[in-house]
């Protein structure tokens, strides 16, 4: 087994001790089939137990381990380490406040997420006794890929608007709201489109498409945001003529 060494330049920050984040370097032997997360785990287990970061499933489905690797937002459990040269820079996810080392504060995301009402909104709930809603495979295909979001927030790190406009709802939140707008069982388009036109409006999106480029799950949030723009606009126009109704 070929043993190669790499140097990891890792951002460190402890608010009780540091005014601002600094970096520390770790040189370790790496295996050819490692993901970047494997290197972090090795460093924590055998070199420096004080390194703090989030991870759990290690199979790219829980969304915990998003970080900046050589300046790019990556899911470190999926990120192939061998693609990098001798030096690898690991930093916390961009555009988020940093709590400690590689750990970001993402309550800001959770708030934007809740604002888009990511649940089935109906005027009247269906009774359990009536069984499931009928939904054809075509109707399911309408929104299925938008429902694949693992909330890893790499898209927020990549979006230039998120860097500049704190109020912007952001790719994942809009994509998840739009997922419910497209779901045939939902009746909440009106309420959600009002959120889409309100504070942090979808119209702040400047067609950068960076979000879709970094998404590890091929959710294509750029598609959702731009579809949401049209949906919100049509809804507004309709609202000028017809009375507003629908569940809130």
């Amino acid at each position: 087994m070929g043993e190669q060494k790499k140097t990891f330049v890792v951002t460190r920050f402890d608010p009780d001790r540091d005014d601002a984040p600094t970096t520390r370097e770790y040189e370790i032997a790496v295996q050819p089939d490692w993901k970047t997360l494997d290197a972090l785990n090795f460093i924590k287990d055998h070199v420096d137990g004080t390194l703090a970061y989030r991870w759990s499933c290690r199979m790219a489905v829980c969304g915990s381990c998003g970080m900046m690797v050589n300046g790019e937002p990556r899911l470190t459990c999926k990120d192939v380490l061998s693609q990098y040269g001798d030096t690898v820079h690991i930093a916390p996810l961009a555009n988020f406040p940093v709590v400690r080392d590689l750990v970001i504060e993402f309550d800001g995301f959770m708030e934007k997420f809740e604002r888009v009402k990511p649940w089935i909104l109906r005027a009247k709930e269906k009774a359990v006794e009536e069984g499931t809603h009928r939904q054809s495979p075509e109707q399911l295909a309408d929104f299925q890929h938008f429902s694949m979001c693992i909330n890893c927030m790499l898209c927020y790190a990549a979006c230039p608007v998120v860097s500049n406009e704190p109020a912007f709802l952001g790719p994942a939140a809009i994509a998840l709201g739009h997922r419910y707008n497209l779901d045939s069982r939902d009746e909440g388009n009106g309420a959600r489109n009002q959120v889409f036109r309100g504070d942090g409006t979808v119209f702040s999106c400047s067609y950068a498409n960076e979000c879709s480029e970094v998404c590890p799950k091929k959710v294509d949030p750029a598609a959702a945001v731009n579809q949401a723009k049209i949906g919100a606009l049509l809804d507004w126009a309709k609202g000028l003529v017809l009375p507003r109704g629908g569940p809130e």
Binding site: A94, F96, P97, V98, A157, N164
Partner: peptide, 30 residues
């Protein structure tokens, strides 16, 4: 990045380091 980028509506229990852009604005990469 903007000092309030992705900030929650109420500050958390500990001090945070300010958010960083992934690239040099205005002409870096993204």
């Amino acid at each position: 990045a903007h000092p309030q980028a992705m900030a929650p509506s109420r500050p958390g229990r500990t001090r945070t380091a300010p958010p960083q852009r992934p690239d040099q604005a205005p002409f870096g990469g993204r």
